[in-house]
Design a protein around this nucleic acid. Sequence first.
RNA 1: GGCGGUAUCGUCUAGUGGUUAGGACGAGGGAUUCUCAGUCCUUAAACCGGGGUUCAAUUCCCCGUACCGCUACCA
Length: 483
Amino acid sequence: MSEKEVRVRIAPSPSGYLHVGTARTAIFNWLYARNKGGKFLVRIEDTDVSRSDAALVQPILDAMKWLGIDWDEEPVYQSKKIDSYGVYVNKLINSGNAYRCFCTPDELDERRKKAMAEKKPLQYNRACLHRSEDEIKQLLAENKPFAIRLKIPDGETTYNDKILGDITRQNSEIEDLIICRANGRAIYNLAVVVDDHEMGITDVIRGNDHISNTFKQIHIYQALSLTPPNFAHVPLILRPDKKKVSKRLGDKDVAEYGAEGILPEAMFNFLCLLGWSPKDDREFLPIEELKKIFVLENVNGSNPIFNEEKLIALNGEYIRSYPDHELAAMVAPELVRAGYTSKYWLETRWQYLMDIIGMLKERCKRMSDFVAMSEHFFHNEFEYDDKAVKKRFNHEAAERMKQLCDKFESIGNFKLENIEGALGDLAEELQIKKGELIHPVRLAVSGISFGPSLYHILEALGQQEVLARMKKAIEFINKMGDK
RNA sequence: GGCGGUAUCGUCUAGUGGUUAGGACGAGGGAUUCUCAGUCCUUAAACCGGGGUUCAAUUCCCCGUACCGCUACCA
């Protein structure tokens, strides 16, 4: 009955944008919280002032919103509570769990280099752990700067990872890590433990690359007499070249996918399927469904490769599943931006837009395809595709189109059946296949050789426009012949 | 180098001590059709290697190999 409310968090550091790895971790955390009726929080890890940039925070938050992720409390900024870590440091020193280290960064660096050259362990040699009281007093009196190190006890440490199972590490493999810089600022591992504790975090779901930190953090919890949360480490997303996704290697900002015509829900669905599975054959899983069925235990332990082709295929599936009016609302601003039409024009002909969307949507894989495929629906300044011209435009086609114009002109009601009827009649009279008429007309009215059913295009365009475009094409063909 | 993790079609994955090892993307073929898509049908494509345990191992154990990660007064 008295199960504790689940509280999870995503903790990005504002040193760049939100890439797919962090986004996917956020998704897992969010789904876990939503599934358990718990809280999802955001913490900005900006304790390293030199690497953090406050201007980078908002884009990260925006990218999460774009994905459909919301958070339940105001984001916590570590930089704003940087002074509050001191009491924990003092507690650790006073209890003998931490000690002052007077070694300078240069000394440490040198020792590390030497160890590396000699292929020896790179760990801190605990030089300062063994200093006498007097020695320490002396150094303090001399105002020598010092960092604080956690003293790792002997033995071994095991924790149960909710994805990977039991993981054990010899404590001798864990370094006496620095938890507080010489300038008094807390270091990541201390800040994480303190914040997770103060925020009441129950489950830490994060990237695989934090497993070694987990052991360090467990020792901080123990030294502080606190109970550690549950840990779950998700495998890292790899690039097609099998390197982990990173800003350094130029991997995309999640928001960039939006600019490239990926729907947020498709991105969410796809990212979720990278390393997680519902254990049945379903793949098209909208967010609402995922909230119901997500369980952490179904995350598998191996690193998936980010396969953009599959994302695009799934995106197409989402496009087809959305109602026309929703798609129209998303596409309209893009059409205006492309310069095809104006906001006003679209507003007064919303139904026309919806008809076009309806025609186009099953052949669009990205939202941007709507723009790319619809220019001719908004004006007639398009060019004819070269290859198609060579194949379809000739004097015979022009002659047939002329005859078809006559047929079209006499149609009283320019509707699908009548258009189809007129074209069919002419084909029969001329003893040719309908395609012989359809292909040149398609090119004449759209400039391209592919797209929706011709009858639908013609009906949408309207009688006048169709006739005008066909006549223009006939003229074009005649001029072609002159050369 | 040390430590940790992982290993099923090219990719994402399902699955089991005995299966025709399943699905999806991508690829090939076919049907529908005015094209392109879409839809439907269909073909090819995988259990990293070696030892055990067992009547039986892709599945359990060990070793090796490969890949990934960590190894900062970064997060």
